[in-house]
Simulated scan of single mutants.
Amino acid sequence: MQSKPTSIVSFSKLHRNEHGGDPVIDRDVFSILEELADEDDPDLVAEIVELFLVDSAERMAQVADADAKSDADAIRGAAHALKSSSANIGALRFSQACASLEAAARGDDLDGLPELVCAALEMYEDVRGAFVRASDESA
């Protein structure tokens, strides 16, 4: 039996957001991605994380721009995509923040959007930082 390749990205209990609380990346969900990697594609997890980081940075920029323009439709669309992609990589708290943002934008709750956008941006930075630190630790 061949051994499973070691993921380039690893997480420990230390990867918590700066404000305490639950881990930024849910280890159980992330483990599912790691199980997909094999000797034929040992870099799969790193590639998925890289794709997430590039796409999410673009979408968070869209959210910030749409917030400045009070464009609830654009916020809703970007938040919807972020909700799904972040859940798939184990960033469950960020996914929940995006779900809240999407729901508020769908309801045209423009008064509450700036606060939700700030919360999502903050959580996104926690997620991005966790991946960067994990990548640095495994290098």
Rank of each mutant, 00 (worst) to 15 (best):
V117C: 09
C98G: 11
A97P: 01
A134N: 02
H15D: 12
K13M: 08
L53G: 09
S85Q: 10
G21D: 09
A81I: 06
V29N: 06
A78D: 11
F131A: 06
V132K: 03
D108C: 09
L44H: 03
E39M: 06
M1P: 09
V24D: 10
L44Q: 04
P23H: 09
A134G: 03
I75C: 06
S12K: 02
M123C: 03
D22Q: 14
S84M: 00
E115C: 04
A103N: 06
S95L: 06
A104D: 09
T6A: 13
D67F: 03
L121F: 06
M1H: 11
A104T: 11
S56Q: 11
R27C: 08
S100F: 06
L82I: 13
A130G: 05
A130Q: 01
D43L: 13
V132H: 01
R128A: 15
A79D: 08
H80Q: 04
A79Y: 05
V117Y: 00
P5N: 01
L51H: 01
S10A: 14
T6K: 00
S31M: 13
S135C: 02
A91F: 06
M123N: 01
V45M: 02
G20F: 00
L92Y: 01
D109E: 15
D136H: 02
P23A: 15
I8C: 11
A99D: 13
C98W: 04
P114N: 10
P23W: 07
A105C: 05
D28S: 14
V63Y: 01
S7D: 14
G129C: 07
S135P: 01
L121I: 12
A97I: 09
V117F: 03
E137L: 01
R133H: 09
D67P: 01
R27A: 15
R59V: 05
D22P: 00
R93L: 05
E18D: 14
A105L: 07
R16A: 11
A103T: 14
A104P: 07
S7P: 04
L36W: 07
M123D: 07
S10Y: 05
F52L: 11
V54E: 14
R93F: 01
E34D: 13
C118S: 14
V54N: 11
E58V: 03
L51E: 12
R128C: 13
V54S: 09
S100V: 05
K13S: 15
F30R: 03
A105I: 07
P5F: 00
E50N: 08
E102W: 05
E58K: 08
E137A: 08
S85D: 13
F94P: 02
A87V: 12
A78V: 05
P114I: 10
D22W: 05
A91V: 12
G77M: 02
D28H: 04
D71H: 00
R27P: 02
A104G: 07
A97D: 14
K13R: 12
D26Y: 02
F11S: 02
A66K: 02
A97R: 00
L92D: 11
L51N: 10
E18V: 14
L110E: 13
F94G: 00
D126V: 01
L113I: 11
L14C: 04
V63G: 08
G21V: 08
E50I: 05
